[in-house]
Amino acid sequence: MARMISREGRSLLVQQGMPRRPLGDLYHSWLAAPWRRILAAVLLLYLGLNALFACAYLLSGGIENAREGFFSDAFFFSVQTLATIGYGRMSPVSLGAQVLVTIESFCGLTGLALVSGLVFAKFARPTARVLWSEVAVVAKQDGVTSLMFRVANTRGNQVVEARLRVGMLRFETTAEGERVRRMHDLPLVRAESMVFALSWMAIHPIVPGSKLYGETPESLRASNAEIFCSLTGLDETFSQTIHSRHSYSVDEILWGKRFVDIMVTLPDGRAAIDYTRFHETKPAPLG
């Protein structure tokens, strides 16, 4: 069965039967959309609005120094009016044109205020730059078989009061014979960090009581298990909460492997982290 959560932690489930409301949550859609889509939407709206008013000016007439029937003159007069530029060469002289100019200038002022506010909200929205290891590993750690993965803060600042939670999603069969999807917490050796500035090795001991105890790659694959990770913390620069999510499928969990050491010493004696080896693993005993 296909995975239900993407590697970035987003749901891959297809919603069926839910009413579609394309205009019901525009603000959320704006904040979640990529910048290229935002810029394309603003540009299309700007050109479309000017084209609409240009057609209205052509129908109403009354634009001094504009050539009759020339769409380009009407379009560029609309651009000047919408942006309240007003070079003075072309101007409205009829009542209909004056009304259109009034409406368009109002649309321009309102639209500029709205777009400015939305762009600022998107700029001000804090985002996390967190690097997750491409795979998780299962190997001995301090004498205990453990599930491990790496996470690092790739931004130069610090994330204070960082908290990491790990869970496992899998299918199970109830006593009534019903197949259900359940989430189980996987406690970590260290689930909180006062200052998350460099890298963090998340370790879940696979001991009696753990939902991974006694599991094998085959049994996890049969239950379509996925490991879901969530990191939250307070960004010191914005003083706002940031979050990052990730998931590992069964095929992205390597058994009998451990991560290589990424701490190195520079020639001048300073300690450094070699992120080029962040995802590298090496063989390790399981038991």
Rank of each mutant, 00 (worst) to 15 (best):
Ser247Arg: 03
Glu252Ser: 09
Leu188Thr: 02
Arg190Asp: 12
Phe71Pro: 01
Gly214Ala: 07
Arg258Ser: 14
Ala222Asn: 08
Leu59Phe: 11
Ala54Tyr: 02
Leu82Phe: 05
Met194Gly: 11
Ala162Lys: 03
Asn153Thr: 10
Trp132Met: 07
Gly287Thr: 15
Ser230Trp: 11
Leu186Lys: 00
Gly117Lys: 01
Ser223Trp: 15
Gln141Leu: 13
Arg190Leu: 14
His243Arg: 13
Gly48Leu: 03
Ala271Val: 08
Arg182Leu: 14
Phe228Val: 09
Glu64Trp: 13
Leu31Asn: 01
Lys122Met: 01
Ala113Thr: 12
Gly287Arg: 15
Val79Tyr: 02
Gly117Val: 05
Val138Pro: 00
Val159Tyr: 14
Ala33Lys: 04
Glu178Asn: 10
Val166Lys: 00
Val79Gln: 05
Arg125Met: 08
Val119Lys: 05
Arg179Ile: 14
Thr127Lys: 06
Gln80Leu: 01
Arg165Met: 15
Glu280Met: 11
Asp185Phe: 13
Ile242Met: 06
Val264Glu: 05
Ala225His: 06
Phe259Tyr: 13
Arg155Leu: 15
Ser244His: 00
Gly111Glu: 03
Leu39Arg: 08
Glu134His: 09
Pro22Asn: 05
Leu114Phe: 03
Ser6Gly: 07
Arg150Asp: 07
Ser116Ile: 03
Trp30Met: 05
Val93Arg: 14
Ala222Pro: 06
Val138Thr: 04
Gln16Cys: 11
Val250Pro: 08
Val207Asn: 02
Gly96Tyr: 02
Met201Phe: 05
Leu266Ile: 05
Val93Asn: 12
Pro92Glu: 08
Met168Ile: 02
Cys55Gln: 15
Gly167Thr: 10
Gly96His: 00
Leu212His: 01
Ser210Gln: 00
Ala66Ser: 04
Ala152Gly: 02
Thr102Phe: 14
Gly62Leu: 03
Lys211Pro: 14
Val264Asn: 03
Glu215Ala: 06
Ser244Pro: 00
Gly108Arg: 00
Met4Pro: 06
Phe123Gln: 10
Leu112Gly: 11
Asp251Gln: 06
Met194Lys: 13
Val14Tyr: 10
Thr102Trp: 13
Ala272Val: 12
Gly69Asp: 15
Arg10Ser: 09
Arg129Tyr: 09
Gly61Asp: 05
Ser29Ala: 14
Thr276Ala: 12
His243Asp: 07
Ala54Val: 07
Ala271Ile: 12
Val99Ala: 15
Ala40Ser: 09
Met148Cys: 07
Gly233Asp: 00
Ala197Trp: 11
Arg190Lys: 14
Pro92Ala: 11
Tyr27Ser: 08
Glu176Cys: 10
Ala51Phe: 05
Ala97Gly: 08
Thr84Asn: 11
Cys229Glu: 03
Leu109Thr: 13
Arg7Asn: 13
Gly111Val: 07
Ala32Trp: 08
Asp235Cys: 06
Tyr87Phe: 14
Arg221Tyr: 09
Ala197Met: 12
Ile63Ala: 10
Leu26Glu: 02
Arg179Ala: 04
Asn50Gln: 03
Val144Asn: 07
Glu64His: 11
Lys282Arg: 15
Gly214Asp: 04
Ala191Tyr: 13
Ser239Arg: 15
